[in-house]
Design a protein around this nucleic acid. Structure first.
Length: 799
RNA sequence: GGGUGGUUAGCUCAGUUGGUUAGAGCGUUACGUUGACAUCGUAAAGGUCGUUGGUUCGAGUCCAAUACCACCCA
């Protein structure tokens, strides 16, 4: 055969060509009628407005490695792609875009806004999936779904109604986390606590019958909403005040002093003001003492323009009000002390401002009820966690789960299927007509709110397979096999999928959860937009190629963070070059060879041939074992060791002499080497295929396809252990040791590897059958037996 | 305050059930362009495995305590 690969490798050219080839043939389509075992993976749907970042690259490349492997093992693979509507994130982008065009989004009707957003989504959304293409990943592209498309929206509505009817979704007025910037409720998960430098204010409340009680608070501006002052019932110093009345400073409002264990005698003064409408703990105290929550803040966190707020403070922003209140309390001579203090402050993750506990009416999911069967299923071991310790994290959250606030005061998302009549009665139904029917024909108004984005993503594993319809896909592919995702959405997404999956489908949605770490920058810092230390995967692909990036990403051991640097990606480039060059070497020695007819029996081949085949067998077993455990890191390491250390560094050196001096070895020996090279190179290409799919495809098409047929390497069988390759090759250790010693001696004696050895002495126990390959590996002309390894250099002699 | 993970070579990290001399990549040094490969090869230097104590014939690995780092929850 005569195949010329060309001296230089151009990864981007190869990748562009192969990508086009893959896109034109739907190689990765699943087959719902297949007789093969199904293997199903859900792509965590990226935000439709998003841009590819390293986290996506990690998820998707890792998933792709497993999907390609499974496909090559004969599985019917369904990798379901799609995007998420990302309620808040998208709404913000669209509103910003409108503002830029001089349109006030708040002046538009709901329909106008939605029209605009859909148009915007069609034009600019979804480019992230195109970006994913570049990485060479293999979801079933034609099955792409969007969380707000018709089918998925129908699933959301159906589930909401079902849960409402079964009492698992309810509407209630209670304290929720409120983002004053976006003016919507947010769930507990969307709140992050930041430690801030703040003040702890100590001041006196006058008592109705004379004297004072000193309290301490970090939020003096909420005092207009105070309903009580609490003292611990066993607080010896203060308990004599329980039952008396205090007067809120700057007002003449009287409030009771009550006994409650919430007031820690060790903290502050031991007396705390109770503002049930503006603090979660105070809310509980209020419930215990039957206090009326009085809300003194507007949705944008200004003091209300009404009683009980004194006129002076009405309409003030919460922080301006704090300043004014502190000044006025000080002026009134009531302030006793101001301390510096680190205050844990709850922030709205999306809004970036402190949230306010706000008394509003919202929709909730009774998460506790949904969690119980999840806990049971996980305890039964139905879900595998990788790494295992994530089990505890997941379970402790599940066991302490709280009601999930699912309504959002936004307009982009799934509108809640609830309608109200004039009397405020609620009708929950799949359609407006049905709701009107329920009401007996009244005029109804639809609930203006939308659902938390994670509500629809929680249905993803079955809604994308066709639920609520009873589709063959749903039967065949649910529950899904594997999810590769970041640990930071374990509660947001994974927990919800588990709850909905069991509730709707009666079974867990995913069998194995593989939580990966973060891709950090070279210094170990988290990549973030604000720090500007993020690396665009597409830039990396442009510089080094998608295969190199994939190779880098697969260095992430299960569950651990990895650090990105161009240097690390270059390792991938080096591998590609090495593979290219060794293929050239192999082809250069196969000119007199045609892989037709029968290969010589393995046991008849020289020991080094049998040795490399037996090493190959070990490697294949190791790689398969690890990939079966979804451990691509250790799988790839095993291939690397075989490819670099065993094949390139040793075997290739051992056989060179057979090609250089065929007359000394005979045609059979040369043919054995050729057959062995042919086999081993093919196995290496196959083993690496899931990791570096572009280059391996290119090499396969150029070298092996003409003989094997088929269209793509990636639908050929993954290399398998071959019992015929296991023969006794223990003598090889003699050769390996001798050559290692020769190389060391060369360095000690400052003799380059280029200089041939005239005579090499090897220990007498080295079998003469190894002399040929030792001569080749050590670059020696003659070989004799002696006491220890020694040599004489040709021409110049020893230096 | 509660929890989880980590601490191994100059740097970034492997090290499976305790078992000879603890590995890799990068970096460093030396030599070398040889008929796959200078986007390279060969070799070398470099580690009391955070600390202390324990179990054991034997501990990077198991147990206890402790220090520091990171993350999660409150």
């Amino acid at each position: 055969m005569k195949i010329d690969l060309g001296k230089n490798i151009a990864p981007r050219d190869i990748e562009a060509r192969i990508q086009k080839f893959w896109d034109e043939n739907n190689f990765w389509d699943n087959d719902v009628n297949s007789k093969q075992t199904p293997f199903c993976v859900m792509m965590p749907p990226p935000n439709v407005t998003g841009n590819l970042h390293m986290g996506h690259a990690l998820d998707n490349v890792m998933t792709d490695i497993i999907c390609r492997y499974k496909r090559m093992c004969g599985f019917d693979v369904l990798w379901q792609p799609g995007t998420d509507h990302a309620s808040i994130a998208t709404q913000l982008l669209v509103e910003r875009d409108l503002s830029k065009r001089g349109i006030n989004p708040h002046a538009l009707s709901l329909d106008e806004k939605l029209n605009y957003a859909w148009k915007w989504k069609e034009e600019k959304g979804g480019q992230i999936l195109n970006q994913l293409h570049v990485l060479g990943v293999t979801p079933v592209w034609k099955r792409e779904r969007f969380t707000m498309d018709d089918g998925l929206s129908r699933a959301v509505t159906k589930l909401f109604v079902k849960m409402y009817r079964e009492g698992l979704i309810y509407r209630e007025k209670r304290l929720v986390n409120w983002c004053p910037r976006q003016q919507t409720s947010v769930s507990d998960l969307e709140v992050e606590t930041r430690e801030e430098h703040g003040k702890f204010y100590y001041f006196n409340y006058p008592l109705a019958d004379g004297g004072f009680i000193e309290i301490a608070t970090t939020r003096p501006e909420t005092l207009f909403g105070d309903q009580a002052i609490a003292i611990h019932p066993e607080n010896e110093k203060l308990k004599h005040l329980i039952g008396k009345k205090a007067i809120i400073p700057l007002t003449d409002i009287e409030i009771p002093i009550v006994a409650d264990v919430h007031a820690d005698p060790e903290k502050g003064t031991g007396a705390v003001k109770i503002t049930p409408a503006h603090d979660f703990d105070d809310w509980e105290v209020g419930v215990r003492h039957n206090l009326t929550p009085v809300c003194i803040l507007t949705p944008d966190a200004k003091l209300i323009s009404d009683a009980p707020v004194p006129e002076k403070y009405r309409g003030m922003d919460r922080y301006a009000a704090r300043k004014a209140v502190v000044e006025d309390i000080t002026a009134a001579g009531l302030m006793t002390k101001i301390e510096d203090k680190i205050i844990p402050t709850p922030y709205s993750q999306r809004g970036g401002v402190p949230v306010e506990p706000m008394l509003t009416t919202q929709w909730f999911v009774d998460a506790e009820k949904l969690a119980a069967p999840v806990i049971a299923a996980v305890e039964e071991g139905k879900v595998q966690f990788l790494p295992e310790h994530r089990y505890n994290l997941f379970m402790s959250w599940m066991k302490n789960i709280r009601p999930w606030t699912i309504s959002r005061q936004l307009w982009w998302g799934h509108h809640i299927p609830a309608w109200y009549d004039d009397g405020g009665n609620v009708y929950v139904a799949e359609t407006e007509d049905e709701a009107i029917n329920q009401s007996g024909g009244k005029t109804l108004t639809r609930d203006p709110d939308v659902l938390d984005t994670w509500f629809s993503s929680g249905l993803w594993p079955f809604s994308t397979l066709g639920w609520p319809d009873d589709t063959p896909e749903l039967k065949r592919y649910y529950p899904t096999d594997l999810l590769y995702t970041a640990a930071d959405i374990i509660f947001f997404w994974v927990a919800r999928m588990m709850m909905f999956g069991i509730y709707v489908m009666g079974d867990i949605p995913i069998k194995t959860l593989n939580f990966h770490g973060l891709v950090r920058d070279a210094k170990g810092q988290k990549m973030s937009k604000t720090k500007g230390n993020g690396v665009d995967p597409l830039d990396t692909v442009e510089k080094f190629g998608a295969d190199a990036l994939r190779y880098f990403v697969s260095t992430a051991p299960i569950g651990t963070d990895i650090r990105y640097s161009d240097e690390e990606v270059k390792r991938g480039s080096k591998l590609l070059t090495k593979l290219w060059n060794v293929a050239r070497f192999v082809l250069g020695n196969l000119e007199s060879f045609e892989p037709t007819g029968d290969a010589p029996a393995v046991e008849t081949r020289p020991i080094e041939d049998r040795w490399i085949l037996s090493e190959l067998n070990k490697t294949i077993a190791e790689v398969r074992k690890n990939l079966d455990k979804y451990d691509s890191f250790n799988a790839r390491s095993a291939i690397d060791t075989f490819f670099y250390d065993i094949f390139c560094d040793q075997y290739v050196e051992f056989i060179k002499d057979r090609f250089w001096s065929p007359e000394k070895y005979g045609a059979e020996s040369v043919a054995a080497a050729q057959w062995t090279l042919w086999t081993v190179l093919r196995a290496i290409i196959g083993l690496y295929a899931p990791f570096i799919p572009f280059l391996t495809e290119e090499l396969w098409q150029k070298i092996y396809q003409p003989y094997e047929g088929g269209k793509t390497l990636h639908l050929t069988e993954y290399p398998m252990v071959n019992a015929e390759y296991d023969t006794d090759v223990s003598d090889m250790q003699y050769a390996i040791d001798v050559i290692k010693t020769v190389r060391t001696l060369r360095t000690e004696r400052k003799i380059g590897n280029g200089a041939k050895l005239e005579t090499l002495t090897v220990p007498q126990n080295v079998p003469t059958a190894l002399y040929g390959l030792i001569k080749s590996g050590a670059r020696a002309n003659n070989i004799v037996a002696g006491d220890a390894v020694d040599f004489v250099v040709a021409d110049a002699g020893e230096k």
